[in-house]
């Protein structure tokens, strides 16, 4: 097959990696929160959307440099994450021992409370911004073409690569080298042990929401700048893909989720070589079903550290 690995194919891989990195940023938020509370945060997709809208408002209002836009989106995302924890998670958490923190009742209750917050947030955004696509001003877009041999990259590709790698690296540094990170891993590993060494579990949970949400919001604005438009429902698809990546990665393994997200992004992108673009979502669901049937622990979930 001489012309199988042609420029178009390489191009699709590059696009797939960008997409996968975005899924990875979203998946990390899911994974961190699942690790610490054993619950799926259904409002995580809306954090992504909130990040994108916060970025757009700043661009329209002040036209600041790109980095400031991303940092602002992350700050708003972190604040939204903290608010979400207060609204949908904290009131249901009465005790902080492991049994009740990770109990089924907690899981089911927060599944619904986070879903409720997600619906309300989305509809509020529709109310204020309408359900239509909002166009990002031309000057802020990341669609400048950079030709590398036969490949066409955009500065958006490069920026997503750079920003994601920096954020993923920063996250690993934070989790392994700082007190906040050690606390997050400790609470994920053993809540009772964490309380005995003097960790404030509530504060650690809030920090986890803030960090996971900041990354999700960053993904939202990056995709907005890359695609050129944003809308209140934009969080749904990446939310589902990131959820699939988390499950494939073994629910609470960050490296697992990141690798699965990249795999997912590249498969989706390359698949358009073989199937029509309208069917590409089948890839994510297909991978999810295959994972659940053949690797119920996830591809990387076996005996790995949570978080």
């Amino acid at each position: 097959m001489p012309d199988f690995f042609d420029a178009y194919f390489a191009q699709q891989i590059i696009n797939g990696l960008s997409l996968g990195l975005v899924y990875a940023l979203v998946a990390i938020g899911f994974t961190l929160i699942f690790g610490i509370l054993n619950v799926v945060n259904f409002a995580h997709g809306e954090i992504y959307t909130v990040g994108a809208f916060a970025g757009l408002l700043l661009i329209v209002g002040a036209a600041p440099p790109l980095l400031a836009v991303v940092l602002f989106a992350m700050a708003v995302g972190a604040a939204a994450g903290v608010g979400l924890e207060r609204l949908a998670f904290r009131p249901i958490r009465r005790f902080s021992d492991e049994a009740s923190l990770k109990s089924r009742a907690m899981r089911e209750a927060t599944l619904l409370s986070s879903l409720a917050v997600s619906i309300v947030t989305r509809e509020l955004m529709v109310h204020f911004f309408s359900g239509e696509m909002q166009v990002i001003p031309q000057a802020a877009l990341l669609q400048e073409v950079i030709a590398v041999g036969p490949l066409t990259l955009t500065n958006g590709n490069l920026f997503i690569f750079g920003a994601s790698v920096v954020m993923l690296g920063g996250l690993q540094f934070m989790l392994y080298r700082t007190r906040v990170g050690l606390s997050i891993r400790a609470v994920s590993n053993n809540v009772l042990g964490a309380r005995h060494v003097g960790i404030d579990t509530n504060r650690t949970i809030v920090a986890t929401f803030a960090i996971g949400s900041a990354l999700g919001a960053a993904a939202g604005i990056l995709v907005g700048l890359y695609n050129g438009n944003i809308f209140p429902y934009m969080g749904f698809a990446p939310g589902v893909k990131a959820f699939v990546a988390m499950v494939m990665g073994g629910l609470s393994s960050i490296p697992g989720a990141v690798i699965s997200a990249l795999l997912l992004g590249v498969s989706e992108s390359v698949a358009t070589d073989f199937i029509s673009a309208g069917w590409k979502d089948m890839i994510a669901y297909g991978l999810l079903v295959v994972t659940l049937i053949f690797f119920p622990q996830g591809l990387f979930g076996h005996g790995r550290e949570r978080v």
């Binding site: 007190r179 050690l182 400790a186 590993n189 042990g193 960790i199 550290e305 949570r306």
Partner: peptide
């Protein structure tokens, strides 16, 4: 014991001193 089983011995001790 409630040690942090998936973390290293050093990390367990660092966590002991987190306060």
């Amino acid at each position: 014991r409630q040690i942090f089983g998936t973390m290293t011995v050093r990390e367990n001790l660092q966590l002991g001193g987190i306060a």
